[in-house]
């Protein structure tokens, strides 16, 4: 795949990809864009192996999710614990899209277990089918349905508890 062809495809997919990572990164747009760019570079290097067996979008999201997992693993190795107030200030001033961060629904999303959160984001925000989510997360379709159902119930409870 040539660079131009790749960029043309990316131009169409960049917004959903950045939105997906923005929610995963709890509203930290700088971190989300950094991971998105790393994912795109990784996809470009591997583009020779892309055989159109899956949709380009699904393939790209799968790479992006793996990049997010790698990034989170790396950060967890170097993270120095800081107190909550300091963390809140850092996020608000430096890297958090506050209009997004303080919506209660998104705060509730942050409290979901990882797989449930990703399944909900992909299904409701990005309109991916269960089959596509199964391919992105590399888990069976039945498990995706379980995560969606469980995530919905958990979200409903969190939102109700906070009198949304």
């Amino acid at each position: 795949m040539t660079e131009e062809r790749f960029i043309d495809l990316v131009r169409v997919e960049q917004e959903p990809l950045r939105r997906f990572l923005l929610v995963l990164c709890d509203g930290d747009s700088a971190l989300a864009d950094d991971i998105a760019q790393n994912a795109l570079v990784r996809a470009y290097v591997a583009s020779g192996s892309f055989r159109s067996l899956s949709k380009f979008r699904t393939w790209l999201f799968r790479i992006a999710y793996n990049c997010y997992i790698d990034n989170r693993r790396r950060r967890s190795l170097v993270t120095v614990p800081i107190d909550d107030d300091e963390a809140r200030n850092l996020r608000a001033e430096d890297s958090t899209d506050s209009s997004f961060r303080y919506q209660k629904l998104h705060q509730a999303l942050e409290r979901l277990p990882e797989k449930e959160k990703v399944a909900i984001i992909l299904f409701y925000f990005e309109n991916h089918s269960v089959k596509e989510i199964s391919s992105i997360l590399d888990i069976p379709a039945g498990t995706v349905k379980y995560h969606l159902s469980s995530g919905r119930n958990r979200l409903k409870k969190i939102v109700a508890d906070e009198r949304y």
Binding site: V10, Q14, R19, A36, Q37, Q103, L155
Partner: peptide
């Protein structure tokens, strides 16, 4: 959920930086 899709700010430097990488 469907009505709370977050809006991503348009960033013209995103693709430029991606190309550079």
């Amino acid at each position: 959920l469907r009505n709370s899709k977050p809006v991503v700010k348009d960033d013209p430097t995103f693709l430029l930086e991606t190309r550079r990488r």
